[in-house]
Amino acid sequence: MSVARMKDLTVRVDTGRWSATVVDGARLDLAGGSVTALLGDSGSGKSMLARALAGTLPATAEASGTLEVPSVAYVPQSGADAFSSSHTVGEQLREIAEPRGTDLAAACDRALYPADRLDLYVEQHSGGEIDRAALAAGFLAAPELLIVDEPSSSVDDGLAEVLWSALGAYPREMVPGAAVLVITSDIGLMSHSGIVDSVVMLRDGRVIADDEAAAVLGSDDPYISRFLGAYLGR
């Protein structure tokens, strides 16, 4: 059963100094109970596609096409962007948790965010800590679509494996029937985790692959094979 769909999504950016189409006619169907990885080179349009789904495009960007999106939470690559600097992280996490009745301690534990940091402000955290706090905020929001941008970029391999496991548990245990979309360049760990059901790949703003993970990771398409080879050493 589909949780979120996009059809012919186009995102155009116009800064006043330059303009470009960064997502071009993308189609995507995210199934409930699944984890989808979104791959592509830097500048391929991954973050803009995700932000269009989340409704968080910058003022310089405009989207067209059809979007069918349920409740959604977006965890940015820089966790600091998810919080205000004027309140403690704990205050802001509680504001998310209380109306929904979600478990703050459990979400922090899943995201590996240390509970003894809750009374601190954003600037008092390390980069890795605030990134994990942002993931805890995503879990607490309990959306039907959870979008996470580079979840393991600021942690070592041991912690990264735990975070990937938590992402796999989200649509199967935490919010059964939800969907997770993960932007990642940590393709080796993604593949090793075994939690990704399908893979979507972008090239120059266009979807060039959308299939089960094993099919895309084993593709003999020259571009896809070269791209994956740079990460998987083949």
Rank of each mutant, 00 (worst) to 15 (best):
G138E: 02
L67N: 01
I208S: 12
G101R: 04
A59G: 10
V199L: 05
R226E: 12
S225M: 09
F139R: 02
Q92G: 08
V75Q: 06
L93N: 06
G43E: 02
S19K: 15
A105H: 11
G90C: 01
R172H: 10
A136G: 04
S71E: 15
G188M: 00
V3A: 03
I130D: 00
D29E: 15
A4M: 10
A213D: 01
E123Q: 13
D103N: 15
A52H: 13
Y74L: 11
L189N: 03
F139Y: 00
R172M: 07
D109W: 11
S44F: 06
G233W: 08
V200M: 05
S225E: 13
A63Y: 03
I147N: 02
A107K: 03
V35E: 05
I187Q: 02
A50Q: 07
G194W: 03
V196L: 01
R117W: 09
G128K: 08
M48R: 12
A137H: 01
S193E: 01
D186P: 02
E161M: 10
L39K: 00
E144H: 13
A26K: 07
I147S: 07
L146I: 09
V23R: 02
H192P: 03
G16C: 11
S152T: 10
D197H: 02
E173M: 03
E95N: 09
D156Q: 10
V11Q: 05
L57K: 15
Y121Q: 04
G45N: 11
T184G: 00
S64N: 14
E173K: 02
E144K: 12
D204S: 15
G188A: 01
S19Q: 14
R172D: 04
M6K: 11
T10K: 04
G45Q: 10
E150H: 04
S193W: 01
S86I: 14
L104M: 05
L57C: 14
G25N: 15
S44Q: 07
L53R: 03
A141G: 10
L53M: 12
F227T: 02
D41K: 15
L53G: 05
D29L: 12
I96T: 11
A115M: 13
R12H: 13
I96R: 04
L228C: 08
W18S: 13
S165Q: 12
P222Q: 05
M190R: 04
S153L: 06
G158Y: 06
H87E: 12
L30D: 01
A61C: 08
L49V: 11
V200Q: 06
